[in-house]
């Protein structure tokens, strides 16, 4: 998968959990999932689990905690899936 394909899929996974839809309209890799998109921390657990299912990967707790931005998520996933 290309980084662009992962980005697109990450945004689609995050979308249902986003409170700030305006921020989602201009989302890029620098967008902070908790602070900009206003995703609740409990929902971030669901998002990480959805990443695991969608990309067939495993995300350790420490790696999950390091996901702050959309770009962090894309980078984490890109490192685990075949390019």
């Amino acid at each position: 998968m290309t980084r662009e394909e992962i980005f697109t899929k990450v945004v689609e996974i995050v979308r249902p959990f986003v409170k700030n839809q305006e921020a989602l309209d201009s989302v890029d890799e620098n967008t902070n999932i908790l602070q900009d998109l206003k995703v609740n921390s409990a929902r971030l657990v669901d998002i990480i689990l959805d990443f695991e299912d969608a990309f067939n990967i495993e995300v350790e707790d420490e790696d999950a905690d390091a996901v702050n931005t959309v770009g962090d998520a894309v980078g984490l996933i890109a490192a685990k899936v075949p390019s």
């Binding site: 249902p16 959990f17 609740n40 409990a42 929902r43 657990v45 669901d46 990480i48 689990l49 959805d50 707790d61």
Partner: peptide, 16 residues
């Protein structure tokens, strides 16, 4: 709506 039992991921409890 997003914290209802049907909405949370099936592995949420194991993860959290």
């Amino acid at each position: 709506p997003l914290c209802q039992p049907a909405a949370i991921h099936p592995r949420f409890d194991i993860r959290a």
